[in-house]
Design a protein around this nucleic acid. Structure first.
Lengths: 333, 333
DNA sequence: CTGAAAGCGCTAACAA
DNA sequence: TTGTTAGCGCTTTCAG
């Protein structure tokens, strides 16, 4: 079943079919109806590849989501979707694995889908100029920026939180409860990723508040996984190092840690307090509810689309938006 | 940058470029190297649409995932991916919203990507024969089947658990602890979806075990959302109906319910026990850990691919596999 | 082993 | 308002 068959069946030319299918104004009502009837009858579906190929332009905005199942992306994606639609564009989304190459995927998608712009939801923090030259449409980095890379600020946009600052505030909250032995559950202190950013906020706070700087307090698990956090914490607790709080770089890690603490008969927050960053839904249902600094998901999605659309329309320039986190008071502090 | 440009730059014909790029055997080493060098230098990326269009066949197996962020699909997807690869095929995955039409998406994908077969991860339980006639390649329904539809068993495959039975066993477990007032937290008793299936298992058990059948015990929230479960349960608890256990049709709902119970000062499991079905990761980190019947995610993915590949290769017939759930003993019972 | 050329199914001028 | 036709960028015969 191709457009040709439909044309024959409807007794019109292929271009008329194409026009009818694409809601072009210059088709007679009769022709359109006839075509649509045949299309319905034969359950005809146009071939996307051919369509994409033939078209000279599109109204597509690409969204590349890095990391299957990052629970905390869901809301952002929903928001992005509706905002893109609202602005009159079409969202083309693709999910890739945590270790897949988003730049390559983006470059491919850009050409295939004739994108007008691109949103990277999650990605590395150290892109090089050369690497990103493969992307030739405007793009915005969402939930991250190019902190450790060599990109020119004027060549891309970003929307996110101030990770260092969020971590700082988390530690500050803990300090305010008069706890001084504050451990940090992190992925790595120097993996060039979000963990490093947040860890350095922790370090800064420890310094600023004149707390004991203790390498024994650093629980580095090289993972963002809840189970690894649980096991890492469990192992670490066996060392018997005394603490009365732990700052976790993410809600996920905190959830793992809480279980380990519980099993070690530490009461939360009486014996050990916990504060994290992210604000995913699940952590709201822990016992006690996790105290955390939430990323403003909806607004992040909104801003990303707004920036990109502004640039696509040609009247705005690239910008870097830092949104404030929202403190969610649970019972873990 | 098209294949033509590369051909010119490399001083060969387009067909040679195509062959070099697709690892065809009939290209001289020199030609291939020259082409690859030019490709690397100019960062050329072939256009997928054109590729797809030109090709007469593919080795693609489509996977349509219904429901953004269903936490419990992640593992299955990973498994499917590696099994498809292992079998020498290529996975083409697409995520769609919970209310999007997977059949339409499948029909489109089938033609665009020249699929050999299709796996629906999540979907409706009531397909009609006519509706599914739009899918002309073999397909398997994963995590669901056609319980409420009119499909011919011999025309498709399915892999899943026995939802009714799982619910029955969950209630049985509860009964074994001598609790007799067992509520059911469900989405709906008759929405023609998984909730109905599991609810009827609950009903069957209630009957079989001669327990009090009480409409007051049915907590129907019309949602699969954790927050709705929390709020629904909270509201329901205000009625003051006495119970000593609640069977939840999913881990997610159970997580919401636990929080509501806790806030109502009900101890779990002393005052109210909880048993659910699914076995997602997060529920393992609740306090107490959720007692639940796990879906065997890895094996489900494996079986789905195995069935589909068997059919694609032409030596096997459609089959309906029901996998046993795995009891996970937590502390909520 | 290589190149020329005919499609793949559609869109978009251009004419009519 | 319609039909004709030339691409879109690639793959794949078919000759050579």
């Amino acid at each position: 079943m191709t457009i040709k068959d439909i044309a024959k069946l409807a007794g019109v030319s292929v271009s008329t079919v194409s026009r009818a299918l694409n809601n072009h104004p210059d088709v007679s009502k009769e022709a359109k109806e006839k075509v649509l009837a045949v299309v319905a009858e034969y359950n005809y579906i146009p071939n996307t590849s051919a369509r994409e190929l033939g078209k000279s332009s599109s109204d597509n905005i690409g969204v590349i989501v890095k990391g299957l199942s990052n629970p905390f992306y869901t809301k952002i994606i929903t928001e992005i979707g509706s905002k893109i639609e609202e602005a009159g564009y079409t969202m083309v989304m693709q999910q890739i694995g945590i270790s897949d190459d988003e730049v390559m995927t983006g470059a491919l998608m850009e050409r295939d889908k004739k994108l007008l712009g691109l949103i990277f939801l999650g990605g590395r923090l150290d892109y090089s100029k050369e690497e990103m030259s493969r992307i030739t449409v405007p793009y915005v980095c969402l939930t991250f920026n190019n902190q450790y890379g060599t990109l020119d600020k004027s060549e891309y946009s970003s929307v996110g939180i101030d990770d260092n600052q969020a971590a700082y505030k988390a530690v500050e909250k803990i300090v305010n409860t008069n706890r001084k032995k504050i451990a940090a559950l992190i992925s790595s202190p120097n993996d060039g990723s979000i963990s490093q950013l947040r860890y350095s906020g922790y370090e800064r706070a420890i310094n600023d508040f004149g707390l004991e700087k203790n390498d024994d307090y650093i629980i580095s698990i090289n993972s963002y996984n809840i189970r690894d956090a649980y096991e890492g914490m469990k192992k670490w607790l066996q060392k018997g190092i005394e603490i009365n709080a732990v700052f976790c770089i993410s809600d996920n890690l905190a959830m793992g840690a809480m279980k380990a603490l519980r099993e070690a008969n530490k009461r939360i927050p009486e014996d050990v307090a916990i504060v994290a960053i992210d604000g995913i839904e699940a952590s709201e249902y822990m016992t006690p509810e996790l105290t955390t600094f939430c990323q403003p998901m909806e607004e992040m999605g909104q801003q990303a689309v707004a920036l990109l659309v502004g640039i696509i329309k040609g009247n705005k320039k690239h910008k870097h938006v830092i949104l404030p986190t929202i403190f969610r008071e649970g019972g873990s502090l």
